[in-house]
């Protein structure tokens, strides 16, 4: 699968399928800090992502002066 790490400007290619929570744990990403997006849908932690999926991890943290 292709994983797009938005704002870091990089992408990863990962082999095999896994659940979203496993993917996030593997990448060291806290679930509270991202939206997990496949196409036009959001995925919950128990969703299975397949080898041919393109997944965007979109950060939700804003910073600096608010």
């Amino acid at each position: 699968m292709r994983v797009i790490l938005r704002n870091q400007g990089r992408e990863l290619e990962l082999a095999g399928r896994r659940r979203v929570k496993e993917l996030l744990a593997e990448l060291g990403v806290l679930p509270e800090t991202v939206l997990v997006i496949r196409g036009r849908e959001l995925l919950t932690a128990d969703e299975l992502v397949r080898e041919d999926d393109v997944i965007e991890l979109r950060p939700v943290i804003s910073g600096g002066c608010r």
Binding site: R6, N7, R58, P59, I61, S62, G63, G64, C65, R66
Partner: peptide, 14 residues
């Protein structure tokens, strides 16, 4: 806008 303000990098609030 998903991208963050370029000056916010490293901010203590983050």
């Amino acid at each position: 806008v998903v991208e963050e303000c370029p000056f916010a990098r490293g901010a203590t609030s983050i």
